[in-house]
Amino acid sequence: MFLARRLLNYVVLIFLASSFAYLLAATTLDPRSNYEQLDPRPSQESIEARLDELNLNDSTPLAERYVTWVGGVATGDFGLTIQGRSVNEEIARKAGVTLRLIVVGTVIGCTVGVAIGAYAAVRQYRSFDRVSTGAAFLVLAIPTVVIAVSLQVSAVAINQAAGVQIFQYGGEYTAGLDAGFWGTLGDRLQHMVLPTLTLAIAQFAAFSRYQRNMMLDVLGADFVRTAMAKGLTRRAALLKHALRTALIPTVTYFTFTFGILLAGTTFTEKIYGWNGMGAWVVDSIFTNDVHAVAAVSCFMAVCVMAASFLSDLLYAWLDPRVRVS
């Protein structure tokens, strides 16, 4: 019951976010200019006909276009791209790329961040703490774009030094490669390392800082002392009692940072030439592709809601008190 209401809320929010994105895109983007600037310029009638076909004609009232679009979305059809291809097919192709990046990047970034942050708290003011704090602040001060580019530059340097292509930094895979299942997998992994690392590093920085502070709060807590007094080693007491308790606020923090992560994904895809949702939305804005923009917004909203739902579940699992009360 509780979950059902949550889900309903999410659906409403996703709908609102996508509608807003559609309306914004439909009013600010100008698909007509795409055709008018063609050389040779198509006839006026064919432009109108084409725009009508795509449901992008600005002489049709916005409300009418919106209703048509919503009608499509309700049946699971996000309309056509400006090139006349099905948005759904594009999504099917690109969503996986982006999801792979987000999921792997987040999992690695959060896990490493939490582990390093928690350990730094235990070693407060020792060298480990100082180094990790310094690194985290450095990363936080640098925009994702710069991180991505610097990683690329270092990868080039390493590749040259090693004389082999250890890292790949363009696209998701080598086009036309025929190396069997394992070869393809290896090739994909090679391509994945750098973009994923870019995202993971940013996540690590935010999470290690946050987790360090949360951990410091509970390190001196009486219940940690109790755990040791009953016979747990310091290490066990810290893991089972302190970290476990200190993870709870971090789960909430995850929801907040997820939006920033999505923005980072966009840059990363663009820089590494991945054909994911992030890169697509940037391209679509340049090509005045209203439906693509709306579709990507919807996708992002779904991601955010999924993340928030996940953290709710995690929260309830970590903190049994919410289940009881």
């Binding site: 219940f223 016979g231 009692h241 308790t245 970590l318």
Partner: peptide, 20 residues
């Protein structure tokens, strides 16, 4: 600790881990 020598602390409100 806890087997041969054990301890009871002053503030019972914070002495137990809240999540277990």
């Amino acid at each position: 600790r806890g087997r041969t020598i054990s301890m009871v602390f002053q503030d019972p409100l914070s002495a137990l881990t809240p999540v277990y």
